[in-house]
Each structure stands twice: as structure tokens, then as C-alpha cells.
Amino acid sequence: MTYATTPDGVRIAYQLQGGQGQGGQSGQDSEGTPTLVLLAGQANNHHWWDAVRADFHPARSTLTLDYRGTGDSDKPDTPYSTELFARDVVAVLDELGIDRADVYGTSMGGRVAQQLAARHPHRVGALVLGCTSPGGPHGVERGNDVRRALAQTRPGAARQALLELMYTPRWLDSHPGPHHTLGDPDMPAHARHHHLVASNRHDAWDLLPRIAAPTLVVHGSDDLLNPAANAPLLADRIPGARLHLIPGARHAYFEEFHAQAGPLVLDFLTTAPRGPAQLV
């Protein structure tokens, strides 16, 4: 297992696949393959990406991490925030000697990616925000019916509700699992609570205009867990951002519709105009 240590002494486990060696000022590995950072959803570890990360390897090495509180990372019982998670990503990039990388964040990972791109612009080459929200008073919250479904106490009911928010019934019929997007089952209760608070308190509205990286916003048109109405809010707020809705997709569009989403993201990453790294 490989780790980076954050300035506050927390060990963050990370996983680099699809390339060999460390990075450098170009954000490439030793074989010249650009690095793509993949950021998972709330209370999930790097396995969130297991089903699709190989889709990017023809053009990118992929870097994932276990957020503090998940996977093989330390799990301190202290407050978490999306800004803090973004600083943890920087610690991993520093450990690998990667000055700048492309970043693809989905769900809460998209919130972390917003913080990363706005507060550390010189570290982000291109940005993809999937099924995410600006948070705060400007974000569109899920409906009360969704909240009630996820709060069911009958055994298995809340899990089934989450599955149906993630995937379409047709896909679930042919993909019985295991599903790696339903949360890290080994998280301690305190870490799960800190993740929930971090995501709920995210508010990047005032930061979004500071994002200078070329940005693609992707969302499933039928996403009720993180309503699709958030996608145009992000795209309109981030200078020059592009927007793409995937018809019929729910929250886990990146997995169920990976045959469409993967090439869409790769095409954007390989054609987005790049300027010199910004120094702040």
C-alpha cells in the first residue's frame, strides 16, 4: 500500500494505475502518459471507479485515493470538509511529484474537484465535474421523497432505494453486483458522519468563477439523488464551461453509461485547450 502524509499528519492511501513511474512538471508519468485524478463520491473509497477506470488507460494513467475516513487511509475523528479533501489531493500529487494533472470528480468528488480547481488552479490542467452541485443556498437539493426513501429503517429498504437512484431498473436486472458506489462498508460511524457533514456544508458558489481550467460538466438527465438542475448552474457559473446531459441516466451515469461517458470525457481531456500552469 502506498501513502502520502498530509500537513496535519494524516496518511492518505493512493492508487496509481495505467502508467509507470512518477510524474513531474508536465503531470505525466515516466512513459509520457498524462495523469487523470479520479475522485469518488461521499463515504466511498477508490473502488467507486473499479468498473470504469480502465476506460481511460489508453490515453491516461489514473490516480485514485481513499479519502480520509475511508479505505486504507487514516480515519481521524475530527471535522472534514471538501476543502480539506482537496488539500489531501494536493498532498498525494506532491508525494508523486505531479505538478499538474487533469481531474474528474463525481458526486461529492465533484465538490472536492471544485475546491481543488478554484483554490489550487496551478495543479489542475482540465476539469470534469460529474453528477455534482455547487452546494449552499444556490444548489438544488434532492426532493423530500428521495430523503424519505433513503431514511427507511426496514432492512435493505434504504440500500435498495439508493441502488435505484444510482442505476436504471433495466441495468440492475442484468448487473446484480457487487456495487461499489453504495459506500465503504468498513467506515467507522464517526467518519461516515464527518463525510456527510463535509458534503452538506459544501458551498463553492463564490469560488466557481475563479476556476480557470477548461471544464466539462456531465450529468444524467434522470438523476434525482443530485438533481440534474445543478448541472447548468455549474456550467453557467464556471467561465467557458461545457455542459453535457446523458439522456436517461441516473446518478451513476459514469458506470451504467460508461460506453458513452468514457469517450466523452476522454475526448474533452484530449482536445481541451491548455495554457501554461497558473502560479498563485
Rank of each mutant, 00 (worst) to 15 (best):
M166H: 10
P185F: 14
D184R: 08
R192Q: 11
R237D: 09
S221N: 05
T181F: 04
H175R: 02
P185C: 10
N230S: 11
A212H: 08
M187F: 11
L207E: 14
D186S: 13
Q160T: 15
N226Q: 10
H194T: 10
L207F: 10
V197F: 05
A229M: 09
T181D: 15
P239W: 01
L182C: 05
H193K: 13
R192P: 04
A213K: 00
Q152S: 14
R170I: 01
L150Q: 00
R210V: 04
G248M: 07
P178Q: 03
G177R: 02
P185I: 05
P227T: 06
P214Y: 08
H175D: 11
P169G: 06
D236L: 06
P178H: 06
D184L: 13
L208E: 10
P188A: 13
V197D: 02
R154N: 06
L216F: 09
P169F: 07
S199D: 14
L162Y: 01
L216H: 08
D186C: 01
N226S: 15
P178N: 02
D203F: 00
R201V: 04
R201W: 02
D222Y: 07
G248W: 02
A204M: 00
T168P: 05
R159Q: 15
P227H: 08
N226I: 15
A149W: 13
P169S: 05
W171L: 11
V218M: 10
A204F: 00
A212D: 09
R201Y: 09
D222Q: 14
P169Q: 13
P227L: 08
L207I: 06
P247L: 04
G240V: 05
R237G: 04
P239R: 00
V217E: 01
L234H: 03
R159H: 13
A158G: 04
M187N: 04
T153H: 13
A149S: 15
D186F: 05
G220N: 12
H244A: 14
D222R: 13
L172Y: 02
H180E: 05
W171P: 05
V217C: 10
I238V: 15
D206P: 01
H219G: 08
H175E: 04
D203W: 00
R242W: 03
V218C: 12
R170F: 06
A212M: 05
L208Y: 01
L165C: 01
L216V: 11
L163W: 03
A229T: 06
H180V: 06
N200F: 07
P188Q: 09
R154Q: 15
P176S: 14
M187H: 07
W171T: 02
D206A: 15
G156A: 14
P214D: 07
L216T: 11
